[in-house]
């Protein structure tokens, strides 16, 4: 971008030097504020207000007010059909890819409206990576899997280093360093999922969204991924959808409980019931529906 024209009508996503936390000004300082700071006082990465989703006019989720703080793990829990996966896909505009899906309400990312018409969803997804329920490595080599993101985004310098760093960050390097040129589909399920996490890390995102990342994995792989999530919070903000309440209890700083409301017309719709620090959600929730769920009496 031409540095002389930055004060004029530059699109908000790439505007350099704007004093407010524009997406492009996101820097190391933003990320490293963590440690002993109470989670509620950490920077707000996502500020969602009245977020809802409709699929072909049918409402699947409504009125979600939720703040997601930096350098922490936020878990979204709740019964099937409560809209937690739908919600997480609002955060990197993956719902754009589903025909007939419409998002309403406001999602602010570092203060910027994610759904502003000027925002390019491609730019959003560069910064907000996603890991899916089923490991989905590309049918090519381990190296090429990690290199895909940097290559399409033009981050081609020192690609080898970048791949190595991403694999190390995802705690996979030692297992695959001697077979980087081998096919990724030959890895075990747990390794594939860590590869997918490494792939997301290789493009230097700010946030990692994980949609039930362990539901297809055995307990040992699950534990490896959970350790990884915890270690990622020093640099990244992690949001995870999980069916597994113990998992939320183990890894999450904040937990949001979603549930299903049956409207007057009988239509089922997901709602956010309660969000709080994880220990409070599991020991002393404010809402009785949350309590019923976490104690196993419902769902």
């Amino acid at each position: 971008m031409d540095p002389t024209s930055d004060s004029t009508a530059a699109p908000p996503v790439t505007a350099p030097g704007t004093p407010s936390a524009g997406l492009a000004t996101l820097s190391v300082e933003d990320r490293t504020a963590s440690g002993s700071v109470p989670i509620e006082e950490r920077e707000v990465v996502f500020d969602c207000q009245g977020v809802g989703v409709r699929y072909n006019g049918k409402r699947a989720l409504r009125d979600v007010d939720l703040r997601i703080h930096a350098n922490a793990v936020t878990a979204l829990i709740g019964p099937s059909g409560c809209g937690k996966s739908t919600f997480i896909r609002c955060l990197n505009r993956m719902n754009d890819l589903i025909p007939g899906a419409a998002v309403d309400g406001a999602v602010a990312y570092h203060g910027e409206d994610l759904y502003d018409p000027q925002v390019d969803p491609i730019e959003v997804r560069k910064r907000i990576g996603m890991v899916f329920q089923k490991p989905n490595p590309f049918p090519k080599s381990i190296y090429d899997n990690i290199a895909f993101g940097p290559r399409v985004l033009g981050m081609k310098d020192q690609l080898d280093d970048r791949v190595e760093q991403a694999l190390k960050r995802a705690a996979l390097w030692d297992e695959v360093k001697d077979r980087l040129k081998e096919g990724a589909l030959g890895l075990s399920g747990g390794q594939q999922q860590r590869l997918c996490i490494a792939r997301a890390l290789a493009v230097e995102p700010d946030v990692i969204l994980m949609d039930e990342p362990c539901s297809a994995l055995d307990p040992i792989s699950t534990s490896a991924i959970e350790d990884l999530m915890l270690s990622l919070t020093d640099e990244y903000t992690v949001v995870i959808v999980t069916h597994n309440m113990q998992q939320a209890a183990r890894v999450a700083d904040m937990t949001a409980f979603f549930s299903v409301d049956q409207g007057e017309t009988g239509a089922r719709c997901g709602v956010l019931v309660e969000v709080d620090r994880t220990e409070r959600i599991f020991t002393n929730p404010a809402n009785e529906r949350t309590e019923a769920y976490v104690t196993g009496r419902f769902g």
Binding site: I122, R125, F132, F148
Partner: peptide, 24 residues
């Protein structure tokens, strides 16, 4: 899942088709 994986990394639809889907 291959397309979603590519798109989630910030690739354009064309990049995903050209680099992943078509070769596969």
């Amino acid at each position: 899942s291959v397309r979603q994986g590519g798109m989630a990394l910030g690739a354009t639809r064309w990049q995903v088709v050209w680099r992943e889907v078509l070769p596969a």
